[in-house]
């Protein structure tokens, strides 16, 4: 589950300061920010640029080049569906269509209740037991449409608040 913290300029700067001395520090900094806040706030760009003596355009260029980095907050869970060949051969295309229909969103979109962000991924390295999906940091194998529905129910079950 997404355990992201609220960001602040100060907390962003703290993450940058912890890593900016490393050779080739930009990717490690971007990972640290996304791991902590769930995404890379646009306000981070000038701070990173200043710390690394780069232009804002360079930092923005790197963020937008890599599929992994996001600039808007994700839903409570990120679900990635493998679209690569090994999974295709055991029904990933059907699973993909099913997931989009069930969630009512396309790739790179989040359900209106902000529960699930759907993403495509090209290989999770579980190619002998596909179709594979990744839910946050855990991979699941042999995911049929029925298994996908069961998983969604599990993810979306939250205890109701009971009035004392």
């Amino acid at each position: 589950m997404n355990k992201s913290q609220e960001w602040s300029l100060q907390s962003i700067q703290t993450e940058i300061n912890a890593l900016h001395h490393k050779p080739g520090a930009l990717l490690p900094i971007l990972h640290a920010l996304q791991d902590r806040f769930g995404f890379i706030p646009s306000e981070a760009i000038p701070l990173i640029a200043e710390s690394l003596q780069q232009t804002r355009a360079e930092v923005h260029g790197v963020i937008s080049f890599y599929h992994h980095f996001r600039t808007t907050p994700p839903g409570r869970h990120v679900v990635q569906i493998c679209r690569a060949e090994a999974c295709q051969s055991v029904g990933a295309r059907q699973l993909e269509a099913h997931a989009k229909a069930r969630l009512g969103v396309d790739y790179h979109q989040t359900t209106p209740d902000r529960e699930i962000t759907l993403e495509a991924v090209y290989c999770l390295g579980n190619c002998a037991c596909g179709p594979s999906i990744r839910v946050d940091d855990s991979v699941r194998g042999r995911v049929t449409p029925e298994a996908f529905d069961a998983l969604l129910d599990e993810l979306q079950t939250r205890p109701l608040e009971v009035m004392a």
């Binding site: 990972h31 790197v62 991924v121």
Partner: peptide, 22 residues
Amino acid sequence: LGAGAYICGEETSLLESLEGKR
């Protein structure tokens, strides 16, 4: 860590990425 770019498996692209670039 890479960041979800297949091209970074190409060795020179990988080196650029390690240097903190696209």
